[in-house]
Design a protein around this nucleic acid. Structure first.
Length: 158
DNA sequence: GCCAACGTTGGC
DNA sequence: GCCAACGTTGGC
């Protein structure tokens, strides 16, 4: 059984349209530099899992669509490169600290499911992304939440 | 190992 | 732009 996740991205930095324009509509999800999020990525995110792409830091705040995990965790190369914004001198090639996965665009929501819509849905009251102070960039989503959001998006399956 | 200070995130 | 929440750092 696949599990479900929510990946957060600043839309100015990387949006669902950027993903749609990528070769094979696939990208590597790099730059996660938080241990709890890293643990999810490294240990729990598997090929075939469903992922919501959430746009933060923009208007509207919204789930923009769904993605599918197409490659499980492997070392995040950007951590080894001094030129990279997310360079981390403590991560070593023989013992990487940070990991990334590959995701492929599955479905772009039209229109997007806004944060306000999520907040109005009683089934989503406990959704992690809606909790105060919730800053993780990788968060788990329950089966019921996954279905409820798809319903709000007006689509039948992820 | 504690905790204050600091930096960052992100909703509003 | 503000500020609350959170994670990390570093002195002790």
């Amino acid at each position: 059984m696949p599990r479900y996740w929510l990946f957060k991205s600043e839309a100015d930095c990387y949006s669902i349209d950027d993903l749609a324009k990528s070769p094979k509509q696939t990208t590597f999800w790099d730059g996660v530099r938080n241990y709890q999020a890293r643990n999810y990525l490294r240990d729990d995110v598997k090929v075939g899992d469903g992922v919501f792409l959430y746009h933060s830091g923009c208007d509207p705040l919204a789930i923009a669509g769904t993605m599918e995990v197409v490659r499980a965790a492997y070392p995040d190369e950007t951590a080894f490169n001094k030129q990279e914004q997310h360079y981390d001198p403590k991560s070593r090639r023989d013992d990487p600290t940070w990991y990334m996965v590959d995701v492929r665009l599955k479905q772009k929501f039209q229109p997007v499911v806004t944060r306000d819509m999520l907040k109005d849905a009683s089934e989503l009251a406990k959704m992690v992304v809606l909790q105060k102070g919730s800053r993780l960039s990788i968060m788990p989503v329950t089966d019921a939440e996954w279905r409820a959001v798809l319903k709000l998006a007006g689509v039948k399956s992820g």
